[in-house]
Computed example of a mutant assay.
Amino acid sequence: MTDLASNKTPAAPLPHGMPWLRLAFRPFYLGAALLAALTVPLWVAVFLGAVNWLPTPPTVLWHAHEMLFGFAIAVIVGFLMTAGKTWTGLATPRGPALGFLFLLWLSARVASLLAPYAVFAVLDLALLPIVGLIFLRLLIRSRNWRNVPLALILLLLTLVNLTFHLSANGLVELAPMRSLYAALGFIVIIECVMAGRVVPFFTTSALPNIKIIGRPWLDRSALAATAIGMTLWVTEWHNGLATAALALAFALNLVRQWRWHPLATLGRPILWILHASHLWLTLGLGLLALAQLGLMPASLGVHALGVGATGGLIIGMMTRTARGHTGRPLTADAPELAAYVLVMIAALLRVLLPMLAPSLYSYALLASASAWSAAFLIYLWQYTPWLVSARPDNKDG
Rank of each mutant, 00 (worst) to 15 (best):
N7M: 14
T9C: 09
P10I: 12
P15S: 13
G17T: 08
P19S: 10
W20M: 12
L21R: 00
L34Y: 05
L34D: 09
A36Q: 06
A36Y: 01
A37M: 12
L42V: 08
F47Q: 15
F47R: 15
L48F: 07
G49Y: 04
N52W: 13
N52C: 10
H63C: 08
L68C: 03
L68S: 03
F71G: 01
V75T: 14
K85D: 07
K85L: 14
W87A: 05
P96R: 10
W105Y: 14
W105H: 12
S107C: 13
S107K: 06
A108G: 08
A111F: 05
L114A: 15
P116T: 03
F120S: 00
D124Y: 01
A126C: 10
L128V: 08
I130L: 15
L133R: 03
L133K: 04
I134Q: 07
F135K: 03
L136G: 04
R141E: 13
S142V: 10
R143L: 11
N144G: 14
W145H: 11
V148I: 14
I153E: 03
T158W: 05
L159V: 07
L159K: 01
N161Q: 13
L162M: 12
F164L: 04
H165Y: 07
H165I: 02
H165P: 06
S167G: 09
S167E: 03
N169W: 10
V172C: 14
A175F: 05
R178L: 08
G185T: 02
F186W: 11
F186M: 14
C192W: 01
A195W: 04
A195S: 13
G196P: 01
R197M: 10
P200E: 09
P200K: 05
F201R: 09
F201S: 13
S205C: 14
S205N: 15
L207M: 13
P208V: 01
N209M: 12
I210L: 15
G214S: 13
W217F: 13
W217Q: 14
R220I: 07
S221D: 10
A222D: 03
A227C: 13
N239V: 13
G240Y: 07
A249H: 04
F250V: 00
Q257R: 11
W258Y: 09
R259H: 12
L266R: 11
P269I: 07
I273M: 05
H275F: 04
S277I: 00
L279E: 01
T282N: 02
G286T: 00
L287F: 10
L290F: 06
G294S: 01
S299D: 15
G301C: 06
V302G: 13
H303D: 15
A304E: 09
A304S: 15
V307G: 06
V307K: 02
T310H: 02
G311R: 06
I315C: 07
I315A: 00
G316E: 01
A322D: 05
T326Q: 12
P329Q: 08
A332Y: 04
L337R: 14
A339T: 04
A339V: 06
V341G: 00
V341L: 08
I345L: 15
V351P: 06
V351W: 04
L352I: 11
M355Q: 10
A357T: 05
L365K: 02
A371W: 02
L377I: 12
Y379D: 05
W381Q: 14
Q382C: 10
Q382F: 04
T384Y: 07
P385L: 06
W386P: 00
A390R: 09
R391A: 10
D393Q: 00
N394M: 07
K395G: 04
